[in-house]
Computed example of a mutant assay.
Amino acid sequence: MIGRIVVGLDGSDSSWVAADYGIYLSVKLKKPVVGVHIVDIRLLETPFVEDLAGALGFTTYADITPKLKEVLDERGRAILNEFAKKCRERGGDCSIAQTFGIVANELVDMTDPEDLLIVGKTGMHNKFAPLFLGSTSEAVARKSKCPVMITTNKFKEIKRIILAFDGREKSVHAAQYLNDFAKNLSIDKVTVISVLEEKSGGKEEHIKELLESHMNLEYELQFLYGYPEEEIEKYIKENREKIDVVTMGAYGESRIKELILGSTTSYIINKSPVPVLLIK
């Protein structure tokens, strides 16, 4: 099912954890992994460069732009070479690529629908310019045409997977994706949680029928009741030592509804203490 594994690298601790997952999955699934570094062109735009030039004592920002571009380019190549070294040492099938652009856009453009894109939850630039750069991981998750894994600050082998399932199209896709993904990781059984507003009988039966139709591996189904984002977050945090990856459909609501009510996907991306695998 997976064509390539593409890992976004920016040199942050979070992205090195993403690299660990990419190399690990390359070896386990016997798939090629591509380490990608995007030099964010917004770091070369006038307001940011002017401030940096002033801080470093340059008389005009034009004096620093070529130097900054060269430094960022060299730094990116060093990151990619370190990734390639780690990948070779661990037996992964790897390649590397670097370009300039808007990070989220470039990562999305470099992937195909059958790829798996892996990014860290927090990047290097969050430390000094979070408002300027925004949330790259969430932008990638929203724009990507392929599944996206958003990793946290610690690597763990993937042995225990939960699926958050609400019966809508994207969660059905997630259930179908797990059939091969879990099997290829030698995982025979997963846990499925489904959050309903209240006990009704009919909705529970509908969820059960959908899972029976679309999941080919063994699973344990648990129903929770309340607001989806709150109940999913609570379940993950209470069972964090027993969960290696949370799988769910990505952005199932319309953009207008998400703006008014918020997005369960975005909420879980930000709150989950374990990696989140999002399926389109």
Rank of each mutant, 00 (worst) to 15 (best):
residue 185 L to P: 10
residue 109 D to K: 15
residue 7 V to K: 06
residue 184 N to A: 08
residue 140 V to I: 13
residue 97 A to F: 07
residue 258 E to S: 15
residue 137 S to G: 15
residue 102 I to M: 07
residue 214 H to A: 04
residue 130 P to Y: 06
residue 250 A to P: 02
residue 56 L to I: 00
residue 123 G to Q: 11
residue 150 I to L: 08
residue 154 K to I: 04
residue 126 N to V: 06
residue 258 E to W: 11
residue 34 V to T: 11
residue 200 S to L: 02
residue 192 V to C: 02
residue 91 G to H: 14
residue 45 E to H: 08
residue 69 K to M: 04
residue 23 I to W: 14
residue 52 L to K: 01
residue 200 S to N: 15
residue 131 L to H: 14
residue 34 V to E: 04
residue 82 E to S: 13
residue 90 R to L: 13
residue 153 N to Q: 11
residue 269 I to T: 07
residue 72 L to V: 04
residue 264 T to W: 14
residue 205 E to K: 13
residue 139 A to M: 05
residue 103 V to W: 01
residue 268 I to P: 15
residue 51 D to V: 10
residue 86 K to W: 08
residue 239 N to C: 04
residue 221 L to I: 15
residue 95 S to C: 07
residue 227 Y to V: 15
residue 254 S to I: 10
residue 75 R to H: 02
residue 43 L to F: 00
residue 161 I to W: 08
residue 85 K to H: 10
residue 220 E to W: 05
residue 86 K to Q: 15
residue 109 D to R: 13
residue 162 I to Y: 06
residue 40 D to Y: 05
residue 233 E to D: 14
residue 187 I to G: 14
residue 21 Y to H: 11
residue 77 R to A: 00
residue 119 V to C: 11
residue 24 Y to E: 05
residue 144 S to H: 02
residue 65 T to W: 00
residue 46 T to C: 00
residue 240 R to G: 00
residue 39 V to Q: 01
residue 158 I to P: 12
residue 182 A to H: 05
residue 48 F to R: 07
residue 5 I to H: 13
residue 92 G to T: 11
residue 123 G to F: 06
residue 112 D to P: 11
residue 234 K to A: 06
residue 116 L to V: 14
residue 75 R to I: 01
residue 82 E to A: 15
residue 33 V to F: 03
residue 79 I to S: 01
residue 151 T to V: 15
residue 101 G to E: 03
residue 149 M to N: 07
residue 262 G to Q: 09
residue 269 I to R: 08
residue 94 C to W: 02
residue 77 R to V: 00
residue 26 S to H: 04
residue 242 K to F: 01
residue 53 A to S: 11
residue 217 L to D: 00
residue 163 L to M: 10
residue 125 H to T: 14
residue 102 I to N: 04
residue 66 P to T: 02
residue 135 S to A: 12
residue 41 I to F: 00
residue 195 V to P: 05
residue 154 K to Y: 08
residue 80 L to P: 01
residue 220 E to K: 13
residue 119 V to M: 09
residue 25 L to K: 09
residue 26 S to D: 12
residue 222 Q to C: 05
residue 177 Y to E: 04
residue 14 S to H: 11
residue 203 K to E: 06
residue 101 G to Q: 06
residue 67 K to C: 01
residue 58 F to M: 03
residue 153 N to H: 11
residue 277 L to Q: 06
residue 121 K to F: 03
residue 13 D to I: 00
residue 197 E to D: 07
residue 264 T to P: 15
residue 6 V to C: 06
residue 258 E to N: 12
residue 41 I to L: 04
residue 275 P to E: 01
residue 189 K to C: 05
residue 99 T to W: 02
residue 129 A to C: 08
residue 194 S to T: 13
residue 193 I to A: 13
residue 78 A to Q: 08
residue 138 E to L: 09
residue 228 P to T: 13
residue 112 D to R: 14
residue 41 I to D: 03
residue 219 Y to N: 13
residue 267 Y to H: 14
residue 50 E to S: 12
residue 78 A to N: 09
residue 154 K to A: 10
